[in-house]
Nucleic acid binder design. Sequence first.
DNA 1: CTTCGGTTTATAT
DNA 2: TAAACCGAAG
Length: 535
Amino acid sequence: MGIKDLLKFLKPHTESIHIKKYAGKRVGIDAYSWLHKGAYSCSMELSLNMEGDKKLQYLKYFMHRINLLRHHKITPIVVFDGGNIPCKAVTQDERERKRKANRELAMEKLKEGDVSAASELFQRAVTISPSMAHQLIQVLRSEDIEFVVAPYEADAQLAYLSSLEAEKGGIVAVVSEDSDLLAYGCPAVVFKMDRYGNGQEIILDKVLGSSDRVPSFRNFDKNLFTGMCVLAGCDFLPSIPGIGIVKAHSLVSKYRNLDRVLSVLKFEKGSQVPEQYSKSFREAVAVFHHAHIYDAALKQLKHMKPIPEDLLKSFDEELDFLGPEMPQSIATAIAEGNLNPCTMEAFSYFPSSSQANSTNLVRCDRLKKQEKRSLSSEDGCFAAVTSCKSRKDEKRGKFSASHAPFVVGRKHIDGAVELEKLKLPLMNDCEEESIIIIQKEVPKLPENNPFKKRNMEDILLKHTESTIKQVSVLTETESSEMLYPTPDSQQSVDSKPVKTTEEDTSVHREKKMKRSSNCHSSVQKSSILNFFSRV
DNA sequence: CTTCGGTTTATAT
DNA sequence: TAAACCGAAG
Ligand SMILES: [Mn+2]
């Protein structure tokens, strides 16, 4: 989980700041850290997919913070985690195992009638499902907030954005809880930002350049710093037994060269050093430098930093540990929030059960060209569209033409979902991989199924009436000083909804519509605005 | 002092 | 997505 003990170790190098120091700047947001925090306020509702809007409180939490930044004239860029990176698999499996255990315990307690014990356990079982992330994405779209879904780790994407000029979509700082960002070389990170905008800032160059603070990083460059992080133990590679952040730091400062540190370690620790350690070590460092990220200008997958020829050779041209490459169309569909990066299913507009994300309509599968994997037929799948390269293979396997009751191509799939909507220009990506779109049978839900009833549109429609008259000042940047007090003036922040007269309300509404006049349905938009303005 | 392995917290009323 | 915390052992 991040770099073990790094933040504690860097405590002397942190500075308490208020986020308003980034006024006028573009700042990256590590979406999952706020999503997780927000989910705590409604973990049971989410886990059980209960009726009502309480399970949407995580969205309100998130937007509250977004509005805090906007109030201070900061432009937030929200970055989501994407697919799972192979070398992190063990870390993630362990997390999921614990979550499931807690969830089952919670269900037991619930059966026993012990609600408070259950809800405590549900808190430990919270997961941010892709569906939840997608609901947030829809709100961000409606609020014209920039966002991007990273192909793999958000950390890497944020570090990449930090290396760009603002004009090219870059950011000057990142708000996150994750120490990995420093290992990725992020120049400025704000940790532990609270609801008032107070946080702990670490400037990497200050850390490396400072001469008077302890621990000292004299003679460290970013590469050595990253090496120290890996030695201390990271998500990709556990540390050698007995090595923590302190020893990692002293080894690196003593030898000022990672290869030398490794050979010293092998000599001193002997058999305690795993056989594969130095290879894994080099790979982990390479992830921090060359992870796969999305280049929004080129609209394609790239390495965070280009991989030098000799480094590539030293890995025998095998970069599988970075996660598979993907065609431009897929990377873009993921980045723009149209494709679930874990399942490769298209997001359906209507969220289903937020925790069990099972009713998406379309699935997009990638098959390596060479791979002779037989197309396993998932129950309920009945149709496929293939890209041009493999179209001749259509008769292959279970996906014969007779199973495909729709046009092969980009137009329509059986009338249910238009491919256009998915922004998947399938025909462009034939060399690398073939792409298969599978349509699942639309699940037949009973009329009283709560999953079906509770979708975003219902909720928004339902609340349009009640909220339209009660516009709070949360989305208004002018008169909201009292809601976002600066540290010195932060007494009563009980942000009660500001009662407005009918007159005021319509004025507010008009303002909002004007602001978003360039876009589609302003009715729905303003209902979303109002919904997340409610207090 | 440092590392290790476990548990608890993160919300908001 | 994680860090913080705490007692025990090296
Ligand atoms: Mn991370």
